[in-house]
Write a protein that binds this DNA or RNA. Structure first.
Lengths: 168, 168
DNA sequence: TTTACTGCAAATATTTTGCAATATC
DNA sequence: GATATTGCAAAATATTTGCAGTAAA
């Protein structure tokens, strides 16, 4: 689908939802939707705040929180499971059946396409559960870290304290 | 493995890690480890705090946070991806290759065993990535919600505001 | 004796909420 | 005009940190 078509589809979906629920079509909601459509992949509340500020469009943080909840509820976006403290979201269009390789060492995430495996997973039936999509994360060590590890002798006398680990 | 053997193994693993890193074998660390071993599945910081309090063992919250980070780092537990604000952990022994059905409506999670599918996933090779385990989450609607949905006529004139959604 | 570790309280970070002002219907 | 929505600031919740005292090595 072209960008413009995607945008139109998202606008209609939101409009339809708001009308059905008798909610208001505020400019904030559509501006935030625009920003979401411009996000390349997963995003955080902060990303939307920044994007709005870059646009010199003033919205309160609370409104962004509320709007993201609303969009999650109406299915335009989805809150992703994350190992982090902050909420992460992604567009629902992207949410369909993810398959990723996660390096346990450097944390890098790589998207993988494997239609055959996807087909096999989707083909499974579990009693009366009605599946719609899946998320397969394969954990391990990426090639880069693997090479890196081989070069090093393993340090067993590391003295640095590991107790208070800073975030990023 | 019997409970006692599991406990001994975990104790040795922690002891080995602490010695290797020249960290101290404090009673807090082993007490918290005990509590973790008694947790049935995933747990939160709060669960450990409660368990310690039930035991009338006083530890500060900060120590629990630090200890969980430490255990995560040494591989005894793992921080789980979660849709929630709070950090969730689980024992590493449980972390190996999870397969779960997640109901998008009620949020219930069901563990599934499917050795055949697990085998198929493990059999895949992706360039130089070295997999160790995987996590497959299948999203959909559980049988209970499905039955429940059928009983209802769909309410399209819902007027209630959806803007501020309370947590649980 | 040295210094890693703990508890405490204060600081940060993230999200939610009450309320008055505003804008949609 | 009625009331859903917003912004703001304050509250609530989750996590981290500085520091002085305690205890493991």
């Amino acid at each position: 689908m072209s960008d413009e078509k995607t945008r139109m589809a998202a606008y209609s979906a939101l409009t339809e939802f708001l009308e059905r629920k008798r909610l208001r079509k505020t400019s904030e909601r559509f501006h935030i939707l625009d920003k979401i459509l411009s996000m390349p992949g997963q995003f955080e509340v902060e990303d939307i705040c920044k994007a709005m500020a870059d646009d010199a469009y003033r919205v309160s943080r609370a409104t962004i929180y509320n709007t993201l909840s609303l969009f999650d509820e109406c299915g335009l976006i989805r809150r992703c499971p994350s190992t982090d403290t902050r909420a992460r979201y992604e567009r629902a269009a992207y949410a369909t059946s993810r398959f990723q390789l996660v390096c346990l060492q450097c944390g890098k995430i790589k998207d993988v396409k494997d239609a055959e495996l996807a087909r096999q997973i989707s083909a499974r039936r579990y009693s009366a559960f009605h599946p719609s999509e899946f998320s397969l994360m394969v954990y391990g060590i990426c090639s880069r870290c693997m090479r890196h590890n081989k070069k090093r002798t393993i340090n067993t006398t590391n003295t640095e304290s590991t107790v208070r680990i800073k975030k990023q």
